[in-house]
Amino acid sequence: MTAHLRRAVVLALGFLFLLGFVYPLAGTGVAQLLFKHQANGSLTADGSTLIGQSWPSPRFFQGRPDASVLTNKPGQVVVSGTEQLGPRSKELEKLVAERAARLRKEGITPTNDLVTNSASLVDPDISPRSADAQVAAVARANGLPIAAVRRLVASQVRAKQLGFLGAPYVNVLDLNRALVRLERATHRGAASGR
């Protein structure tokens, strides 16, 4: 018994050193050396492409409804995945109806993933269908031709990985950054053409 106890303590401390410090710190070293951008959170000048955010203006493409729930608390870290409504929850029905009404008011036909929360509540992506549904409204709000915005969305669709993994999707931050570039280019072009 005492032999067991002594060995257990020594081995627990040995593992603590090897697996609790050497392993994660070596991993951090390798990660920072080889994949600095990813290891630090895939940051751009306007946020992380992997963390959803709210887009409080009709000029931008909207993400999953969850993003607006969580990202606007100043000074607090974004806490992921807390809302859990069951498949026969009255509250879920009510929320979905409200979200759909809000989308319609902005001239957007509601889609499946624009009226439902994600699992992480920080989903940075939407389905290509949801991006398409917003094209007309976003084009109008920015004074851009619909065809140009539609082409922009098409260029931002990410296919299934390796052709068969997961679902095709559009990253909302990347899409909106491209939208702003398009808008600046168009309006600069219009100004110089005048």
Binding site: D46, G47, W55, T71
Partner: peptide, 10 residues
């Protein structure tokens, strides 16, 4: 986010 003025702590 300079586009929207939204600040996040990630």
């Amino acid at each position: 986010d300079a586009l929207t003025g939204v600040t996040q702590v990630i």
